[in-house]
Amino acid sequence: MRAAMAHRANGHPPPAPPEVTAAVTAAVAEHGDAAGALIPVLSAVNRRLGYLPPAALAEVSRRLGMPASRVYGVARFYTLLSTEPRGRHLVQFCENAPCHVVGGRRVWEALRQALGLAPGETSADGRFTLITTSCIGACAVGPVVVIDDEVHGNLTPDQVEALLARYA
């Protein structure tokens, strides 16, 4: 019954590209296909593909026997999941109060200027995506910028250029 509903909700999805199928298969193998596995599965696929393309959402919906609307709703809710393609490097700036009061605003301005991006934008060469993030718990060394999985603390505006240069 559930699978039938999911099928109807999906209509006729185009066949998923092989890398998408592989990513979903690996994620389901690790986390299972129970309802509670949805978020871990989406996270794993997002990490592997860089974002969640429509084909991946459709494939997850099919494997977990869950309506596409629910999968999409979850994918849009959490900030670590993206339904838009992102650059090779994800630059996350912490905009919370602890970083703000120790000079965060000036670092933010330097970052935006160096990248030439507004929050949420990706550079034309696909190198960087700039987003703001909620506190990542490194407040003792603020202001903090996270690039991919690396946390950079105690930043000053004049360090921004050199920091970005390390990410090709």
Binding site: A34, A35, G36, A37, L38, I39, L42, S43, M66, V74, F77, Y78, T79, L80, L81, S134
Partner: peptide, 19 residues
């Protein structure tokens, strides 16, 4: 989790845990 402050609220956390 997958990034949502609200999930620290216990019932939101349970919703998230249930997928």
């Amino acid at each position: 989790g997958a990034g949502a402050y609200i999930c620290g609220e216990e019932t939101a956390l349970l919703e998230s845990l249930e997928g």
